[in-house]
């Protein structure tokens, strides 16, 4: 595979972007909350970041961070009344929130209504301009400008993804992570143990929202154009299906789901008209054989368990 082909780089970029989104849905799910508001938070982040870079010339990275933060603040406001809801009720309330955000953006002057914001400066171009200041160009690495921009975008995203993943894994092993797990397993029991359940649930909700908002900003500056329709109900389903297909027990589940669901449409391009049939069939197969998602806590355990048993058996035979 030609690694420096911009097409391959672009697909990998989308995989990494969806990977961060997958972590955002995973963190909310880690406390057993089913939130369908992620597309809403994503759109808040996307619009805030886009307006900041396009109209106020704010540097990209600050705009992205601000987008995430504002999504987090909104999550705090929304979370206060809605997080008292459980299961399906929370799902419906957050779904409603997402739709409200979309309709607000549709009718606002600054977001340019249904026409959306176009002509944003892409991440690749921004980074390349910075690089030029240091005197390096694509030629220094033997790559064309186009390849260089794609490589820079991907590196930038990989860096962010690595950071987010590292923090998530650390979080999992910290006191907060253990609290999340306890709440997910049994909320009443967790409360009886003296855990401030409301606090931890809110925390998970906000972290998820900040990450989603951040992804929204990234999405806007990769596609260079956004309209409210990019964040509709279909986007919610897409994000959620990362966790459904991949599994939501450990962080690798949604990540694997994001990887599969982003790669699949590209791999299946060869099939043209039959693409959607295959796509559907694979989904059904996964659900039939692994209703809890492809990767669960047992997946790795079992693989290692089996290997250990084999090793033990071989050792026995050897004796």
């Amino acid at each position: 595979m030609d690694l420096f082909n911009p097409y391959n780089l672009q697909v990998i970029t989308f995989i990494v972007l969806n990977g961060i989104l997958a972590i955002s849905i995973y963190i909310t799910l880690a406390t057993g909350q089913l939130s369908l508001g992620h597309a809403g938070f994503m759109s808040i982040g996307a619009y805030v970041a886009s307006i900041l870079t396009k109209q106020a010339d704010v540097p990209l990275i600050f705009a992205l961070l601000l987008g995430g933060l504002i999504a987090g603040v909104i999550a705090l406001l929304i979370g206060a009344p809605t997080l008292k809801l459980h299961g399906l009720y929370l799902a419906i309330a957050t779904l409603g929130f997402g739709e409200v955000v979309r309709v607000i953006f549709l009718n606002m002057e600054i977001t340019n209504g249904a026409l959306g914001i176009t002509g944003l400066k892409s991440i690749g171009s921004t980074l390349y301009d910075w690089l030029k200041v240091t005197g390096l160009t694509g030629d220094s690495f033997g790559l064309s400008v186009l390849q260089m921009k794609a490589v820079l975008t991907l590196l930038f995203l990989l860096l962010l993804f690595g950071l987010v993943l590292f923090l998530t894994l650390r979080l999992h092993r910290s006191r907060i992570g253990r609290a999340f797990e306890a709440i997910k397993a049994d909320e009443t029991a967790a409360k009886a143990m003296g855990l401030p359940v409301a606090y931890y649930k809110m925390l998970a909700f906000i972290i998820g929202a900040v990450l989603a908002g951040f992804c929204g900003g990234l999405f806007a500056h990769i596609t260079t154009t956004i309209t409210p329709d990019d964040f509709n109900y279909h986007k919610v389903v897409e994000i959620l299906s990362f966790a459904v297909i991949g599994g939501s027990e450990i962080v690798w589940g949604p990540l694997f789901g994001a990887f599969i669901l982003t790669t699949l449409p590209e791999v299946l391009r060869v099939l043209a008209e039959y693409k959607m049939i295959m796509y559907g069939a694979i989904m059904v197969l996964v659900m039939a054989f692994r209703p809890h998602g492809l990767i669960g806590t047992d997946t790795f355990a079992k693989l290692f368990d089996r290997r250990r048993k084999q090793a033990a058996r071989q050792a026995e035979e050897g004796m």
């Binding site: 996964v286 492809l294 079992k302």
Partner: peptide, 22 residues
């Protein structure tokens, strides 16, 4: 274990398909 292995194989075959196709 069988179904879980099956799904992993499925995933792996997708990966292989990706590499080959390109």
């Amino acid at each position: 274990l069988l179904p879980s292995l099956l799904s992993i194989i499925l995933g792996a075959s997708l990966l292989a398909g990706c590499g080959g196709g390109s």
